[in-house]
Amino acid sequence: MHARFLGIGDLVETPSVAVVVDVMRAFTVAAWAFARGAEKIVLAESLDEALALKARHPDWMAIKDGPPAPGFDTVNSPGLLRSIDFGGRTVVQKTTAGTVGALAVKDAPLVLCAGFVVAEATARLLRTREGDSVTFVVTGEDGRADEDLACAQYIARRIGDARTDAAEFLHRAAASRAAAELAEGVRQGVHPDDVALCLEVDRFPFAMVAASEGSLMILRPRAVPALTDEGPVPV
């Protein structure tokens, strides 16, 4: 399988398979929301759209980057939302990089959103697409965020070899600028456990698939068979 690694601004054509990576913190947060019972996540194009969707659907929950703000239920922090019960709820998410990256490839036949917490499930689903070229969208820092690139390269390596050791890739992510900014409180809306939670490999057994549903881009969890009973996964 051929893999390429691009920033959002480097996308000039619609890929056949896109893996949008945002480790710190959009897609770690999304995975936690699903683990806490969310049914689906709407990836909003703007804060205004997120608030408008929330206004039309008061039972939905809205998440944003940065500090708490009126109209939003919580912020983009896995440490802060891991105790929230999302049972059966729809979540609207707007972040600086992750949701932007997913929307940039919304016309791709297959769009996966990923972080370390769903790495193996993502790689396992991609193994069923042997022969496809995979574009990893490195969302942070105009494609230069080392935590996102490390995770993308780790997943790419895991596609071919499930025994790939995560240590080198986690070390790079832990030493990234994003990790430092979270740890030092430079960013707002942060929990002290956020970096550690973003670096938990294979915490969750599902991949996350985004697809257009009507006018919205919707992210949903996708269970992936274990290695021993692996077979074609419907996409």
Rank of each mutant, 00 (worst) to 15 (best):
M1S: 12
R4V: 07
G7D: 01
L11V: 09
L11M: 11
V19S: 01
A30K: 01
F34S: 00
G37C: 02
K40P: 07
K40G: 08
K40S: 15
V42Y: 11
A44Q: 02
E45N: 12
D48A: 15
A50M: 02
L51G: 01
K54L: 06
A55I: 03
R56E: 15
R56Q: 13
P58R: 09
D59C: 07
I63N: 00
G66S: 03
G71Q: 08
F72L: 03
S77G: 02
G79M: 01
L81M: 13
D85W: 11
G87S: 15
G88C: 06
V92Q: 00
Q93E: 12
T95K: 02
T99M: 08
T99W: 07
G101V: 06
A104M: 07
K106A: 15
K106Y: 07
A108T: 10
V111H: 06
L112Y: 05
L112N: 07
V118N: 15
R129A: 13
E141C: 07
E141A: 14
A156N: 07
R158G: 06
I159M: 14
F169W: 11
F169C: 01
A175V: 05
A179K: 02
A179M: 02
A180S: 14
E181G: 11
R187W: 15
L197K: 04
C198N: 06
V209T: 10
V209A: 09
E213I: 07
G214L: 08
S215N: 14
L219R: 03
R220A: 10
R222H: 12
A226C: 12
E230L: 15
G231L: 09
